[in-house]
């Protein structure tokens, strides 16, 4: 019951505010409260090389690059803990596609959102 209800509640809360894509492994706090899954390339680790000089997205020029926005917010949003501001520079693991559609809240509690493949080494 909770497993089926929580994703609905989570999307109802996070969808309108952050355009949440329900990846099931939320990293909003690491990315200046900006959902990286709204990047057309779904990049989790910063802007690609295609960002225009004015900060526009390569794929959707009418949109500001998600990562330009994320970095600006991580540096400037009030009330963010310093650790959240710093985490934007950390290497995030590949998305676990099997968690898509799940409640990230549930995966946060269970630890499923932090489980990475055995061979994943991250960065030094």
């Amino acid at each position: 019951m909770l497993r089926s209800l929580l994703p609905i509640v989570e999307h109802a809360v996070k969808g309108p505010v952050w355009d949440c894509q329900m990846c099931g492994q939320c990293v909003l706090h690491e990315t200046g409260m900006t959902c990286p899954m709204t990047c057309p390339k779904t990049l989790r680790n910063g802007p690609c090389g295609g960002v225009a000089v004015d900060g526009a997205c390569e794929v959707k020029p009418e949109m500001q690059c998600v990562w330009v926005k994320a970095n600006h917010r991580a540096e400037n949003l009030p009330l963010l803990p310093q650790s959240w501001r710093d985490e934007i520079g950390h290497l995030r693991a590949p998305v676990n596609n099997s968690l898509a559609g799940d409640s990230s809240w549930m995966n946060l509690v269970s630890g499923a959102d932090r489980k990475t493949p055995t061979g994943w080494k991250g960065s030094e």
Binding site: R44, N45, G46, C48, W120, K121, S123
Partner: peptide, 15 residues
Amino acid sequence: VFDIDGPQLVSIMRT
């Protein structure tokens, strides 16, 4: 596709 991104690909190549 973009199942992974550039920095993740670097790390996977190291693996």
